[in-house]
Amino acid sequence: AEDTGVRVELAEEDDGRKSSIALRLWVEDPKKLKGKPKDNGAIEFTFDLEKETPDDVAQEMVDAGFFHENDVKIVAKSIRDRVALIQWRRERIWPMLQ
């Protein structure tokens, strides 16, 4: 995945079953963002892999004041890349472990 300067990681062990998963997002490289992020804390949130889209969460983070409106696409892409990796892993690894 492209380095957006925004890091998104799993905030919990993925058991491969739950649709809702905890993620943690923080800014690694503020220079890659158009606006100045509110602070460089790690933002933890739950994401429903089946019902929600990264764009929804990114917009809510902008509305909450964490990021500038101009960075909503970068934040959404960062979340989307991590969600895609989680779903990739679930499709390939978990069936073998069942």
Binding site: R7, A42, V57, M61, A64, F66
Partner: peptide
């Protein structure tokens, strides 16, 4: 924990805590 802050937006809860130094890329 005084370093953790909870923010609600559009019904979603965001928990903000300091990023461990080890995870911040050297500027």
């Amino acid at each position: 924990n005084s370093l953790t802050q909870v923010v609600h937006s559009a019904g979603r809860r965001f928990i903000v805590s300091p990023v461990p130094e080890s995870r911040l890329r050297e500027q």
